[in-house]
Design a protein around this nucleic acid. Sequence first.
RNA 1: GCCCCUGUAGCUCAGCUGGUAGAGCAAUUGAUUUGUAAUCAAUAGGUCCGCGGUUCGAAUCCGUGCGGGGGCACCA
Length: 638
Amino acid sequence: MLTIKLPDGKNLFFDKKVTGFEVSEKISKSLSKQALVMSINGELKDLSETIENDCSIKIFTNKDKEGLETIRHDTAHILAMAVQELFPGTQVTIGPVIEYGFYYDFSRKEPFTNEDLAQIENRMKEIVDRNEITKKEVWERSKAISHFKKKGEIYKAEIIESIPKEEQVSIYFHGKWNDLCRGPHLPSTGKVGKFFKLTKVSGAYWRGDSNNEMLQRIYGTGWSTQKDLDNYLKRIEEAEKRDHRKLGKEMDLFHFREESPGSVFWHEKGWNLFQKLIDYMRTKQKKAGYKEINTPEILDRTLWEKSGHWEKFGEHMYTSTTPDEKVFAIKPMNCPGCVQVFNQGLKSYRDLPLRMSEFGKVHRYEPSGALHGLLRVRAFTQDDAHIFCTEDQITNECLSVTNLILGIYKDLGFTNVLLQFSDRPEKRVGDDKIWDKAESALLKAIKQSKLKYEINKGEGAFYGPKIDFVLRDSIGRDWQCGTLQVDLNLPGRLGALFVDKDGSKKVPVMLHRALFGSLERFIGILIENYAGKLPFWLTPLQAMIIPVSDEFDDYAKQVYKKINEIGINCEIDLKNHNLNYKIREHSMSKVPLLLICGKKEVDSNTITIRRLDFKKQETMELNTFLKKFSALNKAPSF
RNA sequence: GCCCCUGUAGCUCAGCUGGUAGAGCAAUUGAUUUGUAAUCAAUAGGUCCGCGGUUCGAAUCCGUGCGGGGGCACCA
């Protein structure tokens, strides 16, 4: 007698061993048709698995996460199958499920082309139609190794050799084709459906190690229904429309050029946005008790040797040799310079906590393949600060940094923020007592903020634990921006000291902290988050005055003068184009306010406002307009 | 850095299998004086990314360098 417990609490009884299929049939005919995989006591298994003991079982369909993931896993197998049918001699390696689909890594001399991809996709659909039956076999390890070696599948043989001894080696057959796999899989290839699409080919290192051979990876996306697939593809398209590189060009904010890869040429409007953000943060930081400083961009190599950067980050540093043969480094970080400012003049415990901020431009030689618009550059401006304090002041300082960061994110429209706490790594400096103190101080600050947080065990910097601030944008993407790090190392290395109450000299604790991280990167994120339609107070060109014809140019100029006086950035379009043309042009370049001046407006001392994305216009007295919009022209918290 | 793709006017792109380049928009000039998403016309605009090679002849084929894109690795 076999008792099988179902998720609803009911029990099914069988008088002999049964398979998952049989259980699903007993539950209902419709379920058995939709069943894809099952779990036995929480462990995912093939439906064909024989159930020998009492257990609880859950059957999954394509509506479940487990079902969808198995579909994706099977699609990866079908991809490998199609590739080996079309391109004999190609070796298969691994093919896991990923967030929106799957990939499979292949070893083959000739590159896969886009045409190949289309061909492979068609073959995959044929394999679905063939409805090949899935069969699992457990093999003797040595048999499996020699089987794959004989087939010329060296990578597979290597994988089997690395499977822990106590685990069984299972081989999955889909018809004649077979692959080493942990499973589980769908009963047959027909169950996969055709809601997948191969998306791209790329290179990927074997076992993720850049010393190894580069394999060819084919990516695909896979779903349970056509609708889900269409939605996903639409979402990708939407994200492409928001690409800050595209919008940056269209909105005339910045450009890149060959002479300086990874460095931004800011245009007037982009720089205006940049300055607005800095102005905003200056005000915020001043209120929070920071003193702004500025340190040299180029510093002698001996300082970098002392700080440890020369040894640890030398590969990423730009250097410069002067005519007198001295070697200088262009700063990749602001901290050593800031510590030198602290070191100048004797500091007392009364000076602590000393919060020094710096909008420092740093240069890092990033690998060419890492560069990506504003999001990964070689020269960027950090909204950096270093707080020198005593151990007892750590919690309070961390809490006020957290509050400052969250307030700023909120002003900029980001309310969904996740904290990531990283504690001591294996390789570290400083004794455990200080680490205990630093970690608990940070954790306390996190708990008081009442935000969601994750713990990344052992991911802290070698010099101290840290919190990273991850914000989620309007289309659900996560960006790591702010960071708060406790440093138990650098102040000592660079000889920072303060005179304590008892007259003794002590090494201060240093907190590193950045709000956006990189201004450049943050601007990229802002553009994508708002799809180019920034909040009014941040918009570089806020209003365009459009005279209906040149008869009204003089009135438009008067309006321009008044609006400019109150600090709203506007321009007049005096070009010889008609109204329709101008409205179209400036709407497309995302100017939030179009101010129309014609006979009606001149006669009544008004302007007609057409707001971006609002078809309806509104006529308003000029003074009313000035009052209303100067109020809107500042950060929400000001 | 690695693999694949890619580089033509300010922008977006066309240019088949080799015969020294074209469109739309933008720009300039002129006409039009316009009331809520493209008025008409004319003009000008190119070291076809750089360098080398094959060829009678290269934007086109080959090599190489640089840049860009998608991933991988990297992201202190």
